[in-house]
Write a protein that binds this DNA or RNA. Structure first.
Lengths: 341, 341
DNA sequence: ATGAAAGCGCTAACAG
DNA sequence: CTGTTAGCGCTTTCAT
């Protein structure tokens, strides 16, 4: 804990402003809170006094008095596979930008698993992904703190969530491959502890099944989202007696790794292997072969969550939770090609 | 849907605890603040009451009463080249982790240029990079808010800063290339609006000069740190009548792009071009040719900054600022080779 | 349209 | 060792 103002520089308070402006502190408060019922003349005097004194109302006093807080806590699992990604940064950027636009303070909390959440002071909470920290979400809900979950469809709790149609996205990716004539389609998963990776796997299976194609466990290789494991996964696939002609990879960064490996083996993408990623990470654009991928609206999800949360925070009565699933979009570029039969 | 416990949740205050425990609120306050002078018996009663009521003191009331805050604000320029990087994520992770260990709240503020900083409530500020937001730093200093700057050596202000020896790192990279026999060494810079990129350019020049090698502007290509511009830069270099045999690139992610381009042109790293990057980004490890690079202690810098700041926040008197420059380390891998003469 | 006064929940002298 | 009593700076009835 720290002494905010030291020594002689006493904090200027609403009272100083009132004195200088020659009005009551109530009037000053009204000006601060933009309550219309203040005479224009007084309003002006107060505003001038505020400017002259460089007065800034104490958030702590305001919050004490109102019981409201405009602090948004963003809870992100301190989980390597998640945190180290294009995804996390996009999220933070999207949320950070909108928070500052809406004058909300953004509190960042890297959550280690299920340790009790420190709720003090947050007026609202955004849970980014729920990985072994479900109890924190429940705690927040129990305490009636407006909360919203993103990138995770939570169906069994009364909480708003905004997630992404991972299953649909995966399905469309695999359907595309099938439409190109591929039959031997492998899937390199992300970390299945995340809902996104699990859903993408589901989508992959679903597409195969709907097209009456066999789902072989040999063609499904699990990873932790890291490039290292993506590489091993791809190596494993290539060594198979009956290797796939196409692969759907659960993230772009892993897909790029697979692509790199293919080249090292003196093979060609898409000639020898068609690849579809997931994310629409800009990195996919730079290589010699632009990556075909599934675009997911990360920034939109982030921003929607802030908007939605700020609504919840303002609302007087508890709102009925919304469950939003954002659509994805297949972005066809150069990493796939029709299979010659 | 699972129904979460609902009901009139009046905030329980220190007074409720006092009543239940049969003591005064002062005693409760003492227990909360771990002041030893409370009889064991009372302490126990209070602790039980706290547990029973699930009481959590209001941070706002505490801060109002004490004038102290344990909130650390992290100010990051909302600057694409910076923010979209390995660097930003490492920083956030390092700072976030240590803050939660030290029970400090982390407020994230994406700063758009020089808009006035909203100081309210922060007990301390970490400025990550200073890009066109110098006025915010000065504002913080003027208000005697403990502040610390990282990744930027600010020599003309009385503020502690922890930066990285970019110049030295660059110099050692180029020296290494020279020791390998290279004479035609190019440099692809980062965005020179950042101090890091500017210092790396300086280091590059210095190394050449010390070795009596000519510094040619043609060999220095400026970028904004993006992979796209890195690619163009490399293309430009290759098209030169007298192309370089080695290139020092201001970031690993750009270096990887250059490497990719070389391969596309059916040339080889390091046979046809030696490359050194900067960052020690794990991505550099995965390709067929591991990237030689300059390791910078990003996480250490982040963590040191929190430690240092928490000291400043605790200190009663203003401390004399420390200027720390963290060393880098050349990590030799496979992307360079001796030049045949 | 404005002001007086009563809190918001907690800490910090200052007695006892 | 413990309780009483002022505030901290602001919002919010309730009068005026």
């Amino acid at each position: 804990m720290v002494r905010i103002r030291k020594g002689p520089s006493k904090t200027i308070s609403i009272e100083d402003v009132a004195r200088l402006a020659g009005v009551s502190i109530t009037t000053v408060s009204r000006v601060i809170n933009k309550i219309p019922s203040v005479k224009a003349k007084n309003r002006l005097k107060v505003q001038e006094a505020i400017k002259e004194l460089k007065f800034e109302p104490s958030v702590f006093a305001q919050r004490l008095a109102t019981g409201k807080s405009n602090v948004v806590a963003l809870v992100i699992p301190r989980y390597e596979g998640i945190f180290y990604s294009f995804y996390a940064l996009e999220l933070i950027r999207g949320i950070g930008t909108l928070c500052s636009a809406l004058k909300l303070d953004l509190l960042l909390r890297l959550a280690d698993s299920s340790s009790p959440l420190n709720l003090k002071g947050a007026g609202g909470i955004i849970f980014a992904d729920i990985i072994s920290n479900r109890s924190q979400l429940i705690e927040a809900l129990d305490n009636h703190i407006p909360s919203i979950v993103i990138n995770n469809y939570v169906k069994d709790l009364e909480v708003s969530c905004i997630s992404i149609d991972n299953e649909g996205g995966a399905e469309s990716a695999v359907n595309y491959l099938i439409s190109l004539g591929h039959r031997k389609i492998a899937h390199i998963t992300g970390d299945l502890i995340t809902q996104a990776a699990a859903q993408r796997l589901q989508g992959y299976k679903k597409a195969l099944e709907k097209n009456k194609l066999p789902v072989s466990d040999d063609y499904i290789v699990k990873t932790d989202y890291s490039r290292g494991q993506a590489r091993s996964a791809a190596e494993k696939l290539f060594k198979m007696p009956n290797p796939p002609t196409a692969v759907f990879v659960s993230s772009d960064s892993m897909a790029l790794e697979v692509m790199a490996l293919v080249k090292e083996l003196d093979k060609d993408v898409p000639k020898d292997l068609s690849i579809v990623g997931f994310d629409d990470n800009p990195s996919g654009l730079y290589g010699p072969v632009a990556l075909t991928t599934v675009r997911q609206p990360l920034v939109k999800m982030a921003q929607e969550s802030v908007k939605e949360l700020s609504l919840l925070m303002k609302a007087q009565k508890p709102q009925s939770p919304k469950k939003i699933v954002l659509p994805t979009e297949l972005v066809i570029r150069e990493s796939c090609r029709p299979l010659k039969i």
